[in-house]
Amino acid sequence: MNAQQRAAWRAALAICDPQAKCEAVAALAAGDFAAPADAAQAPLPGRPDKPALVHPREVAHRGLGTVAGRIALLHAVAHIEFNAINLALDAGFRFADMPEAFHADWLSVAVDEARHFQLLRTRLRELGADYGDLPAHNGLWEAAEKTAHDPLLRMALVPRVLEARGLDVTPGMIRRLLDVGDTATVAALEVILREEVRHVAIGTHWFRTLCAQRGLEPEAAFAQLLAEHRVRLQPPLNLDARRAAGFTEPELSLAG
């Protein structure tokens, strides 16, 4: 990645307005986005003033039998997808020395995440709400900060742990939403679940590529990183989705 490209990735990452960020991702993918002159001074990551960021324990959890409960769920998932846009952009910007294919992969992920965010925001608006109306937590971006020094660690702990968790929990969300007849939200979540498998698989591919470059055995390295960072894979796992995303049986056995 040359300096001009890196500046463009950084500029997209620094945009605060969600819609403008989504548009910048599309332009970046089309090769039609340049960094403004003052972009290098903008703080990272760019995000709107709302939602307010709170401790995870302070994020409300409500039943899905009410509109308010479905809004809370949609808002939480929309916030994850917004952070996922930033995570994908940050991977390309931060690890600028990685191969061109790495940047192409994470730009394709950013495009998907932007579309996911827009799907969820549209559904929120249909229910009379919008992104930013409720508080949210910052766990995904905190993980980005903790892994900013090493692409191997980033691939292990963000796509293969945090983002893979979505593969496990989304089917349960879909079942509960079907029980209350919210097929419109189900349709959005089914798209996201299907496409997130590829995102986690991209993380798996680059994790293994980096392990090979460093002479590490991937399964042992993954287990060691989980232990070192006190991270556990929480059952039950969506075994079919995780296998499709490249998890091996020894890796799946680490759950518990």
Rank of each mutant, 00 (worst) to 15 (best):
2 N>I: 12
200 V>D: 00
160 R>C: 09
89 L>R: 00
225 L>P: 01
1 M>R: 15
46 G>A: 12
85 I>P: 01
137 H>M: 09
64 L>G: 00
248 T>E: 13
168 D>F: 11
33 F>H: 11
163 E>G: 06
58 E>Q: 14
52 A>D: 07
249 E>I: 09
14 A>S: 15
97 D>S: 14
248 T>N: 14
144 A>Y: 07
72 A>F: 02
245 A>Q: 00
54 V>Q: 01
64 L>V: 04
83 N>M: 12
238 N>T: 11
124 L>S: 05
213 Q>P: 02
200 V>C: 10
207 F>T: 04
42 A>Q: 13
152 L>F: 09
52 A>S: 08
123 R>S: 03
166 G>H: 01
177 L>A: 02
253 S>W: 04
228 E>L: 15
235 P>G: 15
156 A>R: 01
245 A>P: 01
80 I>P: 00
106 W>R: 06
64 L>K: 05
9 W>H: 10
110 A>S: 07
216 L>H: 10
5 Q>N: 14
114 A>W: 00
155 M>V: 12
200 V>S: 04
54 V>W: 04
99 P>K: 09
167 L>Q: 02
225 L>C: 07
181 G>Q: 05
160 R>H: 10
254 L>C: 03
58 E>H: 15
209 T>L: 13
59 V>K: 02
131 Y>K: 06
19 Q>K: 13
191 V>L: 06
110 A>K: 02
217 E>P: 00
188 A>K: 00
68 A>G: 12
112 D>Q: 14
92 G>N: 09
194 R>P: 01
76 A>D: 11
143 A>Y: 00
48 P>Q: 11
189 L>Q: 01
164 A>Y: 02
29 A>Y: 14
94 R>K: 10
234 Q>H: 15
102 F>Q: 02
22 C>Y: 01
81 E>G: 03
70 R>W: 02
81 E>T: 11
108 S>E: 12
84 A>T: 13
201 A>K: 02
228 E>R: 15
89 L>D: 02
150 D>P: 05
65 G>N: 14
59 V>S: 05
43 P>L: 03
230 R>V: 14
184 A>M: 15
180 V>R: 00
209 T>I: 07
168 D>S: 13
157 L>F: 08
58 E>C: 06
237 L>Q: 04
194 R>F: 08
52 A>K: 09
74 L>T: 10
195 E>Q: 15
187 A>R: 05
9 W>G: 02
146 K>G: 10
34 A>H: 14
216 L>E: 06
116 H>A: 08
84 A>H: 03
146 K>V: 14
183 T>E: 13
150 D>H: 14
76 A>W: 06
29 A>Q: 11
38 D>F: 07
179 D>P: 05
24 A>I: 08
142 E>I: 09
159 P>C: 10
5 Q>W: 09
191 V>I: 11
91 A>T: 05
185 T>R: 01
11 A>I: 03
89 L>I: 13
40 A>N: 08
4 Q>P: 00
134 L>A: 06
123 R>L: 03
91 A>N: 08
51 P>R: 01
76 A>S: 13
191 V>G: 02
239 L>R: 08
70 R>V: 05
40 A>I: 09
50 K>C: 12
47 R>E: 06
129 A>K: 00
221 A>H: 06
51 P>A: 11
252 L>W: 05
46 G>M: 03
90 D>L: 12
135 P>I: 08
121 R>F: 00
89 L>Q: 04
253 S>L: 08
234 Q>G: 13
56 P>V: 06
102 F>H: 05
97 D>H: 13
125 R>L: 10
233 L>N: 00
57 R>P: 05
